[in-house]
Amino acid sequence: MQDDLHLYEYWPYHRRPKIVWPDGARLALWIAPNIEFYELNPPDNPYRKAWPHPYPAVAGYSIRDYGNRVGHMRLMQVLDRYGVRGSVSLSVALCNHHPEIIEMCAERQWEFFSHGIYNTRYTYGMSEDQERAMILDSIQSIRRHTGQECAGYLAPALSHSEHTLDLFAEAGGLYTCDLFHDDQPTPVRVRSGKPFISIPYSLEMNDTIAYVVQKVEPRRYGQMLRDNFDRLYEEGAESGTVMCIPLHNYQVSCPHRLKAFEDALAYILKHPGVWPATGREIAQYYMAHYYDAAVQDLQQKQREDAWL
């Protein structure tokens, strides 16, 4: 174990090369519905228990199933109303279990990125070969079922190894959602030296963190989304920012919660200069227009301590 994986340089938030998103937009907005499958009876992982209760964990399993049976369509209809495409953080086994959901998202040109095979199979304890096989399985499943080249990765249940990002970059990946260190895309160091970046994926705006961990009231979640947007939008005039709303169909889509999200989304989208995009689109635009400048700026600042 290391005290720091040195995945990125310290890069202060001010005096970076200015980012301007397409059509002069100052904030890139992406919505990331997690579409997950949790197994009723997963194999044991020596480092993390899948369920707090002995098999069958009816409470935990059934509310997550609710997301796919009931919640998904509700959330998709809200995003349809506002013409926003989702970027799906996908447990790829869902392509087998619930292909209807995959087809509906694909028809809408939503992006699919890898969130592992099942959200009950953790990276912990895997050898490098095992983790590589799991990542390749997920990329191939997305290609086979949707025709898309997987560009992004969010490790299953946020379970990582020291090599997760290296392996995903080597498998052809472009961006990671696993790092929460910034409100703008940043270069990430991988051992192959390939260009690879982090796209902000906010844990703070994540509905499951808000509802399950912080236990906030639905209307307060709506207010948090607006407040988060207001500040990032203001700062985006100086240099473009990214706002991500990670969602879970079993949380945000409950009948007492969905309207709070919809009202916040409507509020955000009525502002000029908001670019509703997918994770891949943000990553590709950044790669094409800002990656080189970012790397150069970083190198110069490391050399000269120029920001001091």
């Binding site: 086994a93 292909p99 199979r121 095992q130």
Partner: peptide
């Protein structure tokens, strides 16, 4: 490493 069965998914089906 984990036991390789950890990467087998017998119920990965419709």
């Amino acid at each position: 490493a984990l036991d390789n069965t950890y990467l087998e998914y017998p119920l990965r089906r419709y």
